[in-house]
Design a protein around this nucleic acid. Structure first.
Length: 891
RNA sequence: GCCGGGAUGGCGGAACUGGCAGACGCAGCGGACUCAAAAUCCGCCGAGGGCAACCUCGUGGGGGUUCGAUUCCCCCUCCCGGCACCA
């Protein structure tokens, strides 16, 4: 193809400047992304097998090559790519193309996390059906992605809102139900009044909805579906230690989220009223029993309070028992005592208020004395029972033993209310001063005043005392988690219908799974989703009415839909076999590709998506579908894109549109800038002038390449020896190859990769006159230009394709093997050695590469500046670091 | 409060295992080309002093280890992110 065709009239492009040099053969042609990029995009679309990173499965073309699964997190189809996406995909695409050139069979797929609330909101606002709105957005974003030149394998595209995908959500749900991993329970749930639906714990951030920062989440009692993620709590925790390719930050966040703590349950018997302790283990008073009768709960049976503690070794220091205001025993006491009830209700009201102002953590500790007592089973001591606002109802048992001497919060509380403080732990080293209270140490501490346990080390005591409690039947060693089962029910329309029915005649409250053969349970379209309480599907008769799988009679369908995080928990498995209509995927295919070699996305998914998908992987493994324990070998979390010091957001009005950047500077310059402006793991400040700089750089490469294309076409390079200028160019080329290869293998600091390419280009520019004069052979020019273009291929693919064609490169540039750095050519002949005197730089001496210590030292001492500096002084010591520096210590 | 990450020119950043601080780019300044401008090309560009060769200081602050510290150790300040009464 003629080089002139694409660029002859560059004047009408984005870089328009009234270029008047058309037809002037001495004037190099101008870089015009507006012409180059659409041209190559059209070719790539026409021949995906050559240009897309279409992974080839087992038994296909990929055989014999090692596999590489490169994955970026799938986007929500909002309709517009933002800079965060651009950055994410620029990183992933550079890697995919690089691994491709390194000879791997690369899978690099893309899809759409297409269920969710915005589609419903758009429907309500504009009257467009959610499906239509969503698929329209998918088309728009796919167009943007193509425009960016991303190498996705569209033959395995996944769209989660389509029945061929979500039917498998339903299928998994049935499997989990079968295994007891999906269950229904009535519970207090987080309700977002704005979304009109429940939220998982993970979706509540600081008491507010993850999608609506201004909306306080309410607590409601609802019967909901849960997935038993807690069954895998230990494995999810232990697995983190093995995920060495994951950022420490993400692993720490998940550890904290799982929140495992080892401890013990200990039963404190509830004593009778006031001083009536004749029967400490007797049931509550008859009055309580009577009052409780109109309540269906089991107050009558409450004879004890089970506390959870991680420090059972301090139990002799327990001077009260503290209950959460919601605790059943607190409720029981409240029924007996109106004054107490008012106070407890006061605590609850205050909690609710604090939650609304997002000040739950800052609330001052206080509580009420119930006037009742509990009995410490270890020493028989009666201690008062309090209800306190700092006790969490949903952690542990909602009740604690308060040990003021050895717990900060208990200490603060005891000080406020004048409760007893009794020290039962002291440092093992008796020479130490008695430490101030509260004293928290356990490793080097021993028990005192603890009966027969006194003298034991804390850690040993914890184990022995818990075992003792178990033997005596008033306690047990236990493990508590912060992690809760995953509530997946949503009272929304635009999600996967939960494949369950309830039969009116068999058992109205007993869910029954639909038969697998009935899947998919289709989400009805064209329905009214006007926002009111409850599930929109509940008002669609055709949907609700079903047949009972047991008796064949009338049954009602479950009308809640699944949390959209279900969709994204396993989508990357579907990529390996996206068209399979008989199973979620073929196990052999998944086992070939998994685990994902590199997963790339934002750190905001550190908890939600990344813990759910780890859970799902373990479930699928236990179903025998896959072999891997974890979804991804390596995880990379890129930094945010910042503008004017703040994260880009509509509300701040600092959004930079990728479309605008592409229009002005081209996709290549835009994505290359996203890699150049900062290391990928750090936040990136978007500066348009920087994009312009990259565009100028590409223009320079364009000018040089087109100018010397003729030389490059005549030979394939291969020149190894030559003039000094030739050697300088080849050396710089091979140094750059080595540097970039290293960057991809290691730190991914593509900002320095690109900078090294710029240095190479500056070197070519510096030798431009020599090339013009024919002092550098075409073979060398060819080798350098070919290498340069191959190095650029991962970062600026449209540009590289065009340049490759211009220099007459064979085949597809991305299918060309990655160049291998020649260490011999890369080596410097002469190196500069800094010479210091007493650690301060004095001069730099040149010595041949590989000079011995003696030679380097002699060169340093022979230097005039050095001589002047040490004149009249004694050289006490000479430090020579071969290849690095010389330091003279003088006195 | 706890856990991460960070602080280097006017700006983004570089210096990978302790060895020439400021690579590369942006912005700025000066020059060439041009009737002029744009584009392009060349030069300068941490601070202070000096006509100059050069000298002194300098990687958030204080101390330490070392021939030598942006890098390692101790203490402190500030910024960003996450978690936050988890017993």
């Amino acid at each position: 193809m003629s080089t002139n065709v694409s660029s002859e009239n560059g004047g009408k492009t984005a870089n328009t400047d009234g270029n008047s040099s058309v037809g002037d053969l001495n004037q190099p042609l101008r870089y015009s992304p507006a012409e180059i990029e659409p041209k190559w995009q059209a070719r790539w679309d026409a021949d995906a097998s050559l240009y897309a990173a279409e992974g080839h499965g087992i038994g296909e073309k990929g055989l014999g090559k090692p596999k590489y699964y490169c994955l970026e997190m799938l986007p929500y189809p909002s309709g517009q790519l933002h800079m965060g996406h651009v950055r994410n995909y620029a990183i992933g695409d550079a890697l995919a193309r690089h691994m491709w050139m390194r000879g791997y069979n690369v899978l690099h797929p893309m899809g759409w996390d297409a269920f969710g609330l915005p589609a419903e909101n758009a429907a309500l606002k504009n009257g467009v059906p959610p499906r239509e709105w969503t698929l329209g957005n998918v088309a728009a974003m796919k167009k943007q992605m193509r425009r960016m030149g991303l190498s996705y394998d569209w033959s395995n595209e996944v769209t989660t809102c389509l029945p061929d995908y979500y039917r498998w959500n339903q299928w998994f749900f049935l499997k989990m139900f079968e295994k007891g991993l999906a269950y229904r329970k009535k519970s207090k749930v987080n309700w977002c009044p704005e979304c009109q639906t429940v939220l998982a714990n993970e979706q509540v951030i600081g008491g507010r909805c993850w999608r609506h920062e201004d909306t306080v989440v309410e607590q409601r009692d609802l019967t909901q579906w849960f997935l038993r993620i807690t069954k895998y709590a230990d494995e999810l925790l232990e697995g983190l230690d093995k995920l060495e390719g994951w950022p420490e930050k993400v692993r720490t966040m998940q550890r904290n989220w799982i929140g495992r703590s080892e401890g013990a349950h200990v039963d404190f018997a509830v004593a009778g009223r006031d001083c009536d302790d004749t029967d400490a283990t007797a049931g509550p008073s008859t009055r309580a029993t009577r009052l409780a009768q109109d309540d269906t709960s089991s107050f009558q049976t409450v004879k004890k309070i089970t506390v959870f503690t991680t420090r059972v070794d301090t139990i002799f220091g327990a001077t009260s028992v503290q209950l959460a205001p919601e605790h059943a025993v607190a409720k029981m006491f409240a029924l007996e005592d109106d004054a107490l009830r008012v106070k407890i209700e006061g605590l609850l009201a205050e909690q609710q208020k604090a939650r609304e102002s997002d000040a739950l953590g800052a609330i001052e500790k206080h509580g009420v004395n119930t006037g009742r007592f509990a009995v410490n089973p270890f020493n028989g001591e009666r201690v008062p029972i309090w209800v306190a606002n700092y006790i969490l109802a949903d952690y542990g048992t909602g009740a604690i033993m308060s040990v003021p001497a050895h717990d900060e919060r208990d200490f603060e509380f005891a000080q406020k209310y004048g409760l007893k403080v009794r020290r039962v732990i002291v440092p093992a080293d008796v020479t130490d001063e008695e430490p101030a209270l509260p004293y928290l140490a356990e490793d080097d501490a021993v028990l005192i005043g603890s009966g027969s346990w006194s003298g034991l080390g804390c850690v040993a005591a914890q184990e022995k005392m818990a075992a003792f409690a178990k033997a005596k039947g008033f306690g047990t060693p236990t493990v508590t988690y912060r992690l809760k089962d995953w509530g997946v029910s949503r009272q929304r329309y635009w999600g996967t219908p939960i494949p369950m029915v309830y039969c009116d005649s068999c058992s109205p409250d007993e869910p029954m799974p639909v038969a697998e053969s009935e899947l998919p349970i289709l989400l009805p379209e064209q329905i009214d989703i006007t926002q009111t309480n409850g599930s929109p599907l509940g008002r669609v008769a055709e949907f609700v009415n079903a047949k009972c799988p047991k008796c064949g009679g009338k049954a009602r369908r479950e009308t809640d839909t699944m949390d959209t995080f279900v969709d994204s928990s396993w989508y990357f498995y579907r990529y390996t076999d996206a068209k399979n209509s008989g199973a979620p995927f073929d196990s052999d295919k998944a086992n070939y590709w998994f685990p994902i070699d590199q997963y790339i996305g934002g750190v905001e998914h550190a908890i939600l998506h990344l813990i759910y998908s780890r859970f799902w992987t373990k479930v699928m493994r236990d179903l025998g579908m896959i072999r891997n324990d974890e979804p991804a070998e390596r995880l990379f979390t890129q930094g945010m894109v910042i503008k004017d010091g703040a994260k880009m957001s509509k509300s701040k009005g600092n959004v930079v549109s990728p479309d605008l950047m592409i229009e002005r500077y081209g996709a290549d310059a835009t994505r290359m800038y996203a890699l150049f402006a900062a290391p990928p793991d750090r936040d990136l400040e978007w500066q348009e002038e920087g994009v312009a700089g990259i565009s100028r750089f590409l223009g320079k490469v364009y000018r040089l390449t087109t100018k010397f294309a003729g030389a490059a076409r005549t030979t394939n390079g291969g020149s190894r020896k030559g003039s000094a200028e030739e050697q300088v160019l080849l050396r710089k080329l091979h140094q750059t190859i080595a540097k970039i290869t290293q960057d991809f293998d290691g730190r991914w600091h593509f900002n320095t990769s690109i900078s090294s390419i710029m240095i190479l280009v500056n070197e070519i520019t510096a030798n431009e006159a020599a090339i013009d004069a024919g002092e550098i052979s075409p073979a060398v020019v060819s080798e350098v230009l070919r290498g340069l273009i191959l190095l650029l291929a991962s970062f600026a693919p449209f540009f590289a394709a065009e340049m490759w064609e211009q220099i007459g490169g064979e085949g597809v540039v991305f299918r060309t093997a990655w160049p291998v750095a020649d260490a011999e050519l890369a080596r410097e002949n002469e190196i500069e050695i800094p010479v210091q005197v007493n650690g301060k730089l004095v001069t730099v001496v040149k010595v041949p590469f590989g000079s011995s210590e003696v030679v380097v030292k002699a060169a340093a001492l022979a230097d005039e500046k050095v001589k002047a500096r040490i004149e009249g002084k004694t050289v006490a010591k000479v430090i020579v670091v071969p290849g690095k520096l010389v330091n003279l210590v003088v006195k």
